[in-house]
């Protein structure tokens, strides 16, 4: 399999060096450590700080959501590997504005352990820390066990809502409540057509036949619900929305935001073919769409496939979703 890289072991560091060179006005390292990145603009006194992080290999997750109206700092691990809690602690120390830190990240074992330790250490410095974990992947655990679900592309909405609330100078409890509410209102389902290759391992994370697809696969190649023959885009989207709609209550008159995410190797054309079907199905059910996001929001290196996320809105979520936000990887001005 081909990759345009230098030494595989330099993949993570060189990625971030490139990003820092390209966007010095937006991102900077903490103490020269490429694993610890924070916003480069001026800190706002008394603003709640949002810390995120996780393994590399998912751009724009996680560092692409560090910027105005989103998160304040990120800790980056090796590909698909949790970063160290010592680095998470350094990021927390660097971004705190005296109003506490929300640790917002995806629900994975290693990250959970490390963020918990980072929180404990920040607590010793008298920094108040809360946490919210993204658990939007409906395929990863049954209904009723939402806290066991993995966080995937839908974490974007949690960043967006919590980040907007923090910019409005809401306090830590309020930002945390809204982040959790965003997670609770978000449902994602993904499908994979082909695997990704870890730079250091040099081989595919799983094997799949040319005429097959895996429904419900995770963004690290975790097994999904079932493997089937490749379906048409319309049938695939119908299947995904059916899973999502069985998991959460949507009724005529509701409003949702839609996120159609590419996993890395799927062209935008296909994402729009998928959005077309999502839009048709929601229209049939009388569900309104407010803001659609179509592109790469959470990838898995060069994995081919898509995920569809529905984010059910209410008044306060809609207002926060509409707020501006900008990072080198995401811009929303109106």
């Amino acid at each position: 399999m081909k990759k345009l890289i230098n030494k595989p072991e330099d993949f993570g560091r060189e990625t971030i060096e490139g990003i820092i060179l390209a966007h010095p006005e937006s991102l900077k390292m903490v103490n020269g450590n490429f694993r610890c990145l924070v916003r480069a603009d001026e800190k706002k006194k008394s603003k709640v700080a949002i810390s995120t992080g996780g393994g590399a290999g998912h751009l724009p997750v996680f560092l692409g959501y560090v910027g105005y109206g989103l998160a304040d700092g990120v800790t980056v691990g090796n590909v698909f590997t949790s970063p160290a809690f010592a680095d998470m602690y350094e990021v927390g120390m660097a971004i705190d504005n005296g109003a506490g830190v929300l640790q917002l990240y995806g629900n994975y074992g290693g990250d959970k352990m490390n963020f918990a330790m980072a929180a404990e250490m920040l607590d010793m410095e008298d920094i108040r820390v809360t946490e919210v974990r993204g658990t939007d992947d409906v395929a990863s655990a049954p209904k009723g066990e939402e806290d066991k679900r993995r966080g995937v592309a839908g974490i974007f909405y949690a960043y967006k809502i919590a980040g907007a609330a923090a910019e409005k100078m809401f306090n830590l409890d309020e930002v945390t409540r809204l982040a959790q509410k965003a997670v609770d209102h978000t449902r994602t389902m993904g499908v994979a057509l082909s695997p990704c290759i870890l730079p250091e391992a040099g081989k595919a994370t799983f094997t799949i036949a040319d005429d097959e697809m895996e429904l419900g696969m995770g963004i690290h190649g975790e097994p999904g619900i079932e493997r089937t023959k490749l379906m048409t885009c319309d049938d695939t989207v119908s299947y995904m929305l059916d899973k999502i709609m069985r998991d959460y209550e949507y009724k005529a008159g509701d409003e949702v935001s839609v996120l159609v995410n590419g996993l890395g190797a799927t062209p935008k054309e296909e994402l729009y073919i998928a959005y077309r079907k999502v839009s048709q199905i929601l229209a049939e059910k009388g569900i309104g769409i407010h803001r659609r996001y179509i592109g790469e929001f959470a990838t898995s290196l060069e994995m081919a496939g898509i995920s569809v996320t529905l984010f059910k809105l209410d008044g306060e979520l809609k207002e926060l979703l509409d707020a501006p936000a900008y990072t080198p990887f995401f811009q929303q001005f109106r």
Partner: peptide, 28 residues
């Protein structure tokens, strides 16, 4: 505490992390 963090930042494997946790807990 500082030794635990140093160990953790340099050896973030599962075992390295757990031994770092021992340092931090002892530090308290």
């Amino acid at each position: 505490m500082k030794l635990g963090m140093l160990l953790n930042a340099n050896v973030p494997s599962t075992m390295g992390t757990l031994i770092s946790i021992c340092f931090i807990k002892a530090a308290k």
